[in-house]
Computed example of a mutant assay.
Amino acid sequence: MAHRILDRVQETTTSTGTGGLTLAGATSRMLSLSGAGFVNGDTFWGLIEHATAAEWEIALCTYASAGAGSITRATPLKSSTGAAVSFSAGTKTISLVAPAAVLTLLGSLEAVNAPTISAGALTLDLLLGTVHRVALNADVTGITISNALAGFASGFTLEFTADGTTRTVTMPGNVTALNGTYTPSISNGTRDLLNFVTLDGGTTWLMSIVAQNY
Rank of each mutant, 00 (worst) to 15 (best):
S208I: 04
A83G: 14
L194F: 01
S187V: 15
G37Q: 05
T52G: 08
I71S: 03
T176G: 08
G67V: 04
T176A: 14
S34C: 04
T165M: 09
N40Y: 13
F156C: 00
F152A: 05
L122S: 02
Y63R: 02
A111G: 07
L31G: 06
G20S: 11
E55I: 07
T204I: 04
L136G: 07
T190G: 10
T12M: 14
S146E: 12
L149R: 15
R191E: 13
L47P: 09
S70N: 11
E159A: 04
W205K: 07
T27M: 05
L106K: 11
A121C: 04
G107T: 12
V39K: 08
D42G: 03
D7N: 15
S108I: 10
A211L: 12
M207W: 01
Q10C: 12
T166K: 10
W45P: 01
S28G: 06
I143G: 00
S32Y: 03
G69N: 05
W56H: 05
R191A: 10
A114Y: 13
D192K: 02
A148F: 01
L194M: 05
T190W: 10
G129N: 04
I145G: 03
L6Q: 15
T16C: 08
G155Y: 02
A121V: 12
T104M: 11
A68G: 11
F38M: 12
G20Q: 15
L31Q: 15
L124H: 04
K92N: 09
A114E: 12
A89N: 12
S118P: 01
R8L: 12
I48H: 08
A211V: 06
T116Q: 11
D139N: 14
N188F: 09
T157W: 00
A121I: 09
T43M: 13
T13D: 07
G189Y: 05
A111E: 15
T166H: 07
I94Y: 03
G19R: 04
T170S: 08
L105I: 03
L206P: 02
A26G: 12
V97P: 02
T62C: 04
T203N: 12
T14G: 14
A177V: 12
T52V: 10
A135T: 15
G129Q: 02
V39H: 02
I143C: 07
G129L: 01
V112M: 03
V39C: 06
A83M: 10
V175W: 03
F196Y: 08
R133Y: 05
